[in-house]
């Protein structure tokens, strides 16, 4: 039995995986920042799904559906590469939204099955922005190369969140 099974395995090893395939361990990143600005003002600066100009890595945001159900956006990065995303929930009153990446090249961001949410809390003087992501590494099979392993995925997403939140804080505290 072992022999025939292993022969069959050798054949199927070459089959492509679906877009929903992923590695065995989901990763998480949570980054937050305190901003000396009213929560309403912070939300006004970053709460529009169709405008991610507050993030220093984003060259252009183009999308459809505003902030409604089924909204989509394509982020063009400075230096090349695009990320296609879909809005999955939007709560203006709660100052939060959630989205997923629908298409990305692992050379642009080394992740798969990525979902995220961003939320503003605070009052008329001070705010906290929390950005959370859940995702798998870019390599869907066993024994990933170093640039597509779990650590690489966490490092890349952490970098994206930190750069965005730092820039948002700088902009708002400068009175921008």
């Amino acid at each position: 039995m072992l022999r025939t099974t292993l022969a069959a395995l050798a054949l199927v090893a070459a089959l492509p995986f679906s877009a929903l395939a992923h590695g065995p361990s989901r990763q998480k990143v949570v980054q937050s920042i305190e901003i000396n600005a009213p929560a309403d003002k912070v939300w006004a600066a970053m709460g529009n799904f169709q405008d991610m100009s507050w993030h220093p890595a984003i060259e252009k945001t183009a999308g459809t559906g505003d902030n409604g159900a089924g909204a989509k956006r394509t982020l063009t990065l400075k230096g090349g590469g695009t990320i296609e995303e879909a809005l999955t929930s939007y709560n203006a009153e709660g100052k939060s939204y959630a989205y997923e990446i629908t298409t990305v090249d692992v050379k642009t961001l080394p992740v798969s099955n990525y979902s995220s949410s961003i939320k503003v809390t605070g009052d008329a003087a001070k705010s906290t922005v929390e950005w959370k992501g859940a995702f798998y590494r870019g390599f869907v099979n066993n024994d990933p190369p170093p640039e597509l392993n779990d650590e690489a995925a966490v490092k890349a997403v952490t970098g994206v969140y930190k750069a965005g939140l730092d820039a948002l804080k700088a902009k708002l505290e400068a009175g921008g």
Binding site: M1, T5, L6, A8, L9, V12, N141, N142
Partner: peptide, 26 residues
């Protein structure tokens, strides 16, 4: 086995793999 089509049967007392069965992918 998430990476293949294998269902592996193990005897936990001896640690031996006693059979392998082919199932669907992942």
């Amino acid at each position: 086995d998430w990476y293949s089509r294998r269902l592996v049967e193990v005897d936990p007392k001896s640690g031996a793999i006693t059979a392998e069965f082919e199932v669907g992918q992942s």
